[in-house]
Design a protein around this nucleic acid. Sequence first.
DNA 1: CCGAGATGTCTTGACGTCGAGATACTTTAC
DNA 2: GTAAAGTATCTCGACGTCAAGACATCTCGG
Lengths: 171, 171
Amino acid sequence: MAYPRAMRDEVDRLIEAWRRERPDLDVAPMEVLSRVTRLARHLDRARSHAFETHGLESWEFDVLAALRRAGKPYQLSPGRLLKETLVTSGTMTNRVDRLTARGLVERLPDPADRRGVLVQLTDAGRDSVDAAMADLLAHERTLLGSISERDQAKIARVLRELVGPFDQENH
Amino acid sequence: MAYPRAMRDEVDRLIEAWRRERPDLDVAPMEVLSRVTRLARHLDRARSHAFETHGLESWEFDVLAALRRAGKPYQLSPGRLLKETLVTSGTMTNRVDRLTARGLVERLPDPADRRGVLVQLTDAGRDSVDAAMADLLAHERTLLGSISERDQAKIARVLRELVGPFDQENH
DNA sequence: CCGAGATGTCTTGACGTCGAGATACTTTAC
DNA sequence: GTAAAGTATCTCGACGTCAAGACATCTCGG
């Protein structure tokens, strides 16, 4: 488990510190899970940076991307949107307000339910999210450049297995 | 790449939607990176849940754990703490205030620098973080139960390679 | 049909974080 | 030795999120 200095990362240092302080604990899980957490944090920042070029915040992309994925006519209810983006209803109201003010989405009455609303992507919103998505994927491809396709497939498979129990428990 | 229904996860659905809507894009990076992001979100929630038992919030654990890892006498400056926990100085002031109010840490003047302060773990703080850490690791071990040690080591190695560039860039 | 409970959205107030600036002290260069 | 630049911490106002609850509308059993 010894790596040359240049190959050690923050998590190696973290684990080493815990082993020194709590030699009684088995800290092996951190080798995988702390790295997942840490990588996710870095990816978040990289994402924000990629979106900056397109004048989008991460949260804006999240909402626009959900609408874009839905396909024509790019409409979803706020309720559906908050399931997709994992935020609460108050937050979604606020987000839709601001996206509307920016002209990226519009609110339409739901013809089938008078309580309901449909949030629809505008042309500008679609253009924004399409450009940002292409850019994001390009960045991500670069990041993964050093990992063989075989390894990527393997990692994906193991991660799927790890996520499985979670995805199932909420429904 | 076809999996039985029960084996598909949210990311498979996500990717499928993008492929349908943007067949021109190569969405392969999402197989790994979206799963990392998603798993991290789940881990965060699981962490919060594990800490609840010990009356700790995630942010509290983060600060206490940094002090615990430092080893006796469990002291770090606010400046060092904010590097460890990746928050801003205003946030750290606020956190230390609240941890002090709860009796988990105390603020001492730094004898070597009169601008400085040392944040020190109290006995209660140490007990809390030790118990929470043991519990966290137990949960994480369960989570990883279905993954062979060999695979865990492989994943850890690849993740280290992915995190590498990020850890280096800030310093 | 009618009323009770479910559902969809928005409102409101509290809270944690950020970021810029203020203050006090230390270090460096001359 | 002193002035200028650097460093450590805290203060303060703005902002996004959450959680609880208000309100309108829908659904379904009787």
